[in-house]
Write a protein that binds this DNA or RNA. Structure first.
Length: 615
RNA sequence: GUCCUCGUAGCUCAGCAGGAUAGAGCACCAGAUUCCUAAUCUGGGGGUCGCAGGUUCGAAUCCUGCCGGGGACGCCA
């Protein structure tokens, strides 16, 4: 598990569809098994409505088609009868009966029955499922691609760490989450911009400049002693000091700060950003756009954004109430420039200018979000640390206000990562300079492990990351479990090459193999899990929840390993049967389909599927 | 004090666009195990989905209020 991960290739089909007033289902043109049957059910309902004289305007678009939780209920369940009972003026069972009858007549349907409060459970003909195996092999890792996004542009901003030092372990989560979300949205048919916001305008980068100047003097041989309070102590700044010393010599020694601050700020930021980019690249994360806060301010974007708000009457000068509870010691009532955030759902109005007359971070951020919108993305997503929770309402309010309601913002908050080493917590202190860098983590376990593990929890749950555990080769380690399934599948194909010499075992060939011998419930069960991939892509993309991909891959792996284990007990169920080439080929098609779906899912997460797992 | 977020099995966590008897792994208990790739496998017990209301044919899921953990709360970013 060492190879570089790569982002999912772009190039999904893009459709310009009107999304207004259409349901989730109807925005989606992709024909996975469930969407196909939804159309068939709707057609049957139209037909039934005509024959039974139902009223017009029935909510057929609210009909859902989904796999039942309990597999013994069948393959597909629909709520149509329960949903229509009221508007039709009948009871669910009276509707369900004829509908089930109509559906049972379809060649793809093996059985249809009414159950529970009025569900219709469909059991599909095995050939419907078998055809899905061929479809997977024919589409390869593009299987699961959807047109749900209809080519709509989405801007995903993530990481955006301050350029005042190297990325540390905590940044890994937002980095992986954002990147996987971006890939997921691409797979679901969106046009995605991956963006990093460089906070190079505040007081922090001036501290960085001063700290770099100290290191610069140190590099020229001066004894600077202990790093004074108010400076960054990190060793990483020595390189910056040395670089400037090498290029500029001693020209900035003994000069007033006003002369060198600007130079040191931009040089230091430049070097820090280069560092950050390199770390990210080593995790396979690359951005389309790096936006500079300073540049935005310098071209007057902040002023322009606030002018826009002012024209809409959303800016005024006023005095804020002191915050309840913990009041800052130096609090004093003061008139300041405020944005009417409270008109857009925020609790209070928010300041736009600091006491020294410069813009607040929030003011700059308004301009920045407007900039993202004006560059063509009506849908904005910010991936932030959970400590920014208090910032969400005001930023959403600002986006609504500044875009005149045409832009939308979703903020995904990532909770903390707790590092452990063999069960012992790894203590980190920024002040003492003992924080663990992202580089440390990558060097220790590799990018693929970092990426996968970061998605084994919902983004809003804290996550434990144990150096030892994530490298274990056991069932407990989800990275291993999924990778092993893929490696195992590859191994089967390798063995099959020996058992069936001269046979074409390429995916293209396997896609055309007859599959009628796939009859075991566990074989069909595995196919059903695989056939759920397109549906999962769509729901995970819609919810902006890439962790679902990681959990889904665990299910695929479990179903595959289960089948494998069954072959241990019953030799007839092994993938390779020396005396039965046809069954073997059908099973190899299933094995390759499994590997393909795993690879397709890992591509979203940005993890390279491995061919074998030998150490 | 206000806002955000989480609360599901002993533990760690899933739970899909609201669906039927709420799931997985670990741990625990009972069995199997010279196996196509080795990093075991099969079965079993375990739950007032924090509490109380509401919406709905139907709620772990949506809404409101409490309780508990975490986070945030002008001039940090």
């Amino acid at each position: 598990m060492t190879a570089r991960s790569r982002p999912y290739p772009a190039g999904q089909p893009r459709f310009a569809r009107d999304r207004a007033a259409t349901s989730w289902y109807d925005r989606c043109t992709t024909m996975n098994v469930f969407n196909q049957f939804r159309e068939k059910i709707q057609a049957a309902l139209q037909d039934l409505a005509g024959r039974q004289g139902w009223p017009d305007g029935l909510p057929f678009d609210r009909v859902t088609v989904e796999p039942p939780r309990d597999p013994s209920h069948g393959d597909i369940a629909t709520n149509a009868a329960m949903l229509l009972a009221k508007p039709v003026g009948s009871n669910p069972r009276a509707i369900a009966g004829p509908l089930a009858e109509a559906l049972a007549a379809l060649p793809e349907v093996a059985a249809a029955e009414v159950a529970g409060p009025g569900f219709i459970n469909l059991r599909l003909a095995p050939d419907v499922w078998r055809a899905e195996v061929s479809a997977i092999l024919a589409t390869s890792t593009a299987y699961g691609n959807s047109t749900l996004g209809a080519g709509r542009r989405v801007n995903v901003e993530y990481v955006s760490a301050n350029p005042t030092g190297p990325l540390h372990a905590a940044h890994a989560r937002g980095a992986v989450f954002g990147d996987a979300l971006a890939s997921l949205l691409e797979k679901a048919g969106h046009a995605v911009t991956r963006e990093y916001y460089i906070n190079d305008a505040g007081a922090q980068v001036e501290t960085l400049a001063r700290s770099a100047h100290l290191r610069y003097r140190e590099a020229l041989g001066e004894d600077i002693g202990a790093i004074p309070e108010g400076h960054y102590p990190g060793e990483y700044l020595k390189e910056v000091g040395q670089a400037i010393a090498a290029s500029d010599g001693d020209k900035w020694v003994g000069r007033p700060e006003t002369e060198w601050l600007e130079v040191f700020r931009s040089r230091a930021v430049e070097l820090m950003v280069a560092d950050i980019k390199r770390d990210l690249l080593d995790m396979g994360i690359r951005f389309d756009t790096f936006s500079s806060e300073r540049a935005l301010v310098e071209v007057g974007a902040v002023q322009r954004a606030l002018d826009t708000l002012e024209q809409r009457g959303l800016v005024y000068t006023g005095v804020l109430e002191p915050p309840k509870g913990k009041v800052p010691e130096d609090w004093e009532p003061r008139p300041q420039l405020l944005f009417k955030a409270s008109e857009f759902g925020d609790d209070v109005d928010r300041p736009l200018k600091k006491s020294d007359g410069s813009w607040t971070y929030f003011a700059n951020d308004i301009a920045y979000h407007l900039d993202k919108f004006l560059r063509g993305s009506p849908e904005l997503i910010d991936v932030l640390g959970a400590d920014h929770g208090g910032y969400v309402k005001r930023m959403k309010a600002a986006v609504t206000a500044i875009t005149g309601g045409e832009g939308s913002l979703d903020v995904k908050l990532c909770q903390l990562v707790h590092l452990f080493d063999g069960g012992k917590p790894v203590r980190m202190s920024k002040r003492a300079g003992t924080f663990v860098t992202l580089r440390d983590v990558i060097d220790a376990v590799g990018p693929d492990v970092v990426r996968f593990i970061m998605l084994t929890r919902r983004n809003d749950q804290t996550l434990d990351f144990d150096y030892q555990k994530v490298r274990e080769q056991s069932r407990d380690n989800p990275v291993f479990y999924v990778q092993y399934a893929h490696a195992r599948a590859t191994s089967v194909i390798r063995h099959a090459g020996e058992a069936l010499p001269g046979r074409d075992l390429s995916d293209a060939a396997l896609a055309k193999v007859p599959l009628a011998s796939l009859t075991d419930p566990d074989e069909l069960g595995l196919i059903k899990v695989l056939a759920g991939w397109p549906r999962l892509v769509e729901s995970a993309a819609e919810a902006h929840e890439p962790h679902r991909v990681a959990f889904y891959l665990g299910e695929v792996a479990a179903a595959f390993h289960g089948l494998w284990n069954k072959g241990k007990e019953e030799a007839r169920l092994r993938f390779i049967l020396a005396d039965d080439a046809e069954t073997t080929l059908a099973r190899l098609a299933l094995v390759r389909a499994t590997a393909t779906v795993i690879a397709s899912g890992l591509a979203v997460i940005g993890v390279q599927p491995v061919e074998e797992l030998r150490e």
